[in-house]
Design a binder for these strands. Structure first.
Lengths: 188, 188
DNA sequence: GTCTATAAGGAGATAGAC
DNA sequence: GTCTATCTCCTTATAGAC
């Protein structure tokens, strides 16, 4: 599959090196076959973006935990989401590359928008789920909280990539989890 | 100046289109002159990175305010830093492009590290300055708080770029400012 | 020293053989 | 339908004229 091959090349070598030649070589296919499956390289990149973003959101969903202790659950869930990222740094870097790439082209900026909307939807679902299970309600609007969560995870991962300081990242995450817990109050 | 020309091309067209041809054309110079000033394109990109990161840190420093009211000052400073970013979205996008580009090459990963160290240093200086002026001390280690600040501003800006929703970004920023203020206690 | 002209290689896309 | 061979364009870098 060309998309899977492109994903491997991209994770390994970065978006700049992800040429049609490299992709078809990775897939063990002749170069000519590329334009038999995709009209252009951009068309493949668009399909690839939806795939890797979907995988990422799925991984975040799988990281949810639920023991009933709100602060501990938040901390565990955030740590699990962050761990899912740091375990695959190259895949995470691909997501940033796809975002910046899409933002440069007016034709594909919609893709970056969709990407971060997907993140927000996942965070919103999680916050709703937690509120329901722990019988609390959030003291700030869910859209604001969801964006705060996405911002923190996404920003923390980007800050982590250059120095890979997992220790301090976890401390930041715990501080954020405590903040989030303080924004919950018992529901009536 | 070739670096200034490269910065303009990069902000306008993105890193992928920032070729030696485009740079020299922007500078009104013949193509051959490029390699008279720089050994290679990567050498210029390295110098350009230090320039734009320096400009960014300087802009953040200029955004500091001080009225004595801690929560209000934090809110105003964070908003000013964020405004400095959103007023120049293309320049901010360049910073992300430079980071992801540098992270892909073992030879230049040091540059990405230096970039985020610069952000951290700026945030650390700000937190120290605020603590001194408002006569408070932080209840979490400064390195953790500094990374939290950088993460939030940087992550929020990246989340803002696709949908440009300034309204909700400011709400997130205010929530974060309140959180930060709650992490201060009067110094003895 | 400055710049023109060109080299040498890699990119995406395609025409046409099988 | 599949793949080989090639086309055209664009990249960085350089050799050599002025």
């Amino acid at each position: 599959m060309l998309i899977a091959a492109a994903a491997r090349v991209m994770a390994r070598d970065g978006i700049a090196q992800t040429t049609t030649r490299a992709i078809t070589a990775e897939a063990g296919m002749p170069r000519g076959s590329f334009h038999y499956c995709f009209r252009s390289k951009d068309e493949l990149l668009r399909e690839l973006a939806t795939t890797v973003v979907g995988d990422m959101v799925q991984a975040a969903q799988d990281a949810q935990t639920d023991t009933g202790d709100l602060p501990a659950d938040l901390r565990a869930a955030l740590r699990a989401m962050f761990a899912a990222i740091t375990e695959h740094p190259d895949e995470q870097l691909v997501l940033y590359e796809l975002t910046t790439y899409a933002l440069r082209d007016p034709e594909t900026v919609e893709l970056a928008r969709w990407q971060y909307e997907s993140y927000l939807r996942q965070a919103t679902d999680y916050l709703d789920y937690v509120a329901d299970r722990a019988r609390i309600r959030w003291t700030l609007p869910i859209p604001v909280l969801a964006r705060l969560v996405v911002t923190t995870i996404d920003g923390l991962a980007l800050n982590w990539l250059p120095d890979r300081d997992t220790e301090i990242a976890c401390q930041v995450l715990d501080a954020f989890a405590a903040h989030l817990a303080s924004l919950a109050e018992p529901s009536t």
